[in-house]
Computed example of a mutant assay.
Amino acid sequence: MDEAEEEIERLEHIRDDRSMRQHCALKHGIVKEFLAEFLGTFVLVLFGCGSVAQTVLSRNTLGEPLTVHIGFSVGLMMAAYVAGGVSGGHVNPAVSLAMVILGKLKIWKFPFYVIAQFLGAFAGAAAVFGLYYDAFMDFTSGILSVTGINATGHIFASYPARHLSILGGFIDQVVGTGMLVLCILAIIDGGNIGAPKGVEPLAIGLIIMAIGVSMGLNCGYPLNPARDLGPRLFTAVAGWGMEVFRYTAGYWWWIPVAGPMVGGVIAAVIYYLLIELHHHRDEPDKPHEEEEDSLKDKYEMITMS
């Protein structure tokens, strides 16, 4: 009797668990995708900006440029694992726009993806600030600034190196994001070599590592409007003030927003025209071949008669 009662109790528990899942599970796909993009971008910013915070606030005793590259690379990889199976794990408006251009994302979903990405990045920046709040106060003596020896604004958003012009920064972001999107498209392209199923996030993380060690000098390779503008908005309201938008005569803040979007579109067009357009596809050609054979048979019958 004891075993029977235990089995009945176990079955009832399974039934209740399924009922709860059915009750709580989201029915609308776009809501699930929205939440996935939000959480994925949150993970990216938490790991990425967190690695910068640890480096800066420890005055380089617990970090260096390489650890920042690792933080963002692993952050993007984990973000792709978190959101990839639900929304594709774009976590970047430039990537989402490229997918719209190529017909891989419905255009009406694009605004939802972008809003989720910006909110996730904002929340990720807030989490980093909360995690290291005491360290921020100790490092800055309570004065949060964008410039100076104790500047901390660059922990959350990108700022240009002294040698970089506005045009140079825009080109930097177009090229850097273009390479990111181009390589992502190659990784997920079933008609190309691609990456084994489940390994795609690792390969995408390695793209960021490659970009970081080769294109990070000018402005730190933001490559992502949400990852840059979301945390920048957070710093504006958290104590750094509007200086985060007024920095440099050309108002730098728009460069990591516009540049990546342009770079993503250009990369999508280039990859399609140079690679994807030329994939060999047998099935679509078969109807044309059959039609040609039929016309040829009819022509032979006419000429013979």
Rank of each mutant, 00 (worst) to 15 (best):
K109E: 10
S158K: 02
A80N: 15
F170S: 02
A116Y: 05
L119H: 03
F156I: 02
M78V: 15
I155P: 01
V114L: 07
K106N: 06
P111H: 09
Y132P: 13
G103P: 11
A79M: 05
M99H: 13
F156R: 00
V114G: 03
T152K: 01
F118M: 13
D172A: 14
Y133D: 01
T147F: 01
I149Y: 12
H90F: 12
G84K: 03
L102Q: 09
P160D: 06
M77P: 04
I143T: 15
D138P: 00
A79P: 06
F110M: 10
A127F: 14
K109D: 07
V86W: 03
P160T: 03
N92P: 10
G148Y: 00
S141C: 04
G148M: 02
M78Q: 11
S158F: 03
D172N: 13
V82K: 05
I166N: 07
N150F: 08
V128Q: 07
R162E: 15
L76S: 07
M78R: 03
S145M: 07
F112P: 05
T152A: 00
N92T: 09
G153F: 01
A125V: 03
Y81K: 08
I171P: 00
N150M: 08
N92M: 12
F118L: 15
L164D: 06
D138C: 01
G168A: 09
I107D: 07
T147N: 11
G168M: 07
L131C: 12
H163W: 15
N150S: 14
A126K: 05
G84E: 08
A151H: 01
Q173S: 08
I107C: 12
W108C: 10
V174G: 06
Y132K: 06
V100Y: 09
G153I: 01
H90Y: 09
F122K: 05
S145C: 02
D138Q: 12
G153S: 08
F156L: 01
A98G: 15
G130F: 06
R162P: 06
M137T: 12
L97Y: 14
L144P: 00
Y81D: 11
F136V: 05
G124W: 00
V82S: 12
Q173P: 04
N92V: 11
M77A: 14
V82H: 08
D172Q: 06
V86G: 04
G120Q: 01
F156G: 01
A79I: 09
I155L: 05
G142S: 07
P111T: 11
G85I: 10
V86K: 06
S141W: 00
T152I: 05
G130A: 08
I171F: 14
M78P: 05
A94T: 05
I143C: 05
M137C: 11
P111Q: 08
G124K: 00
L119E: 02
G169P: 00
P160E: 04
F118C: 14
A121F: 02
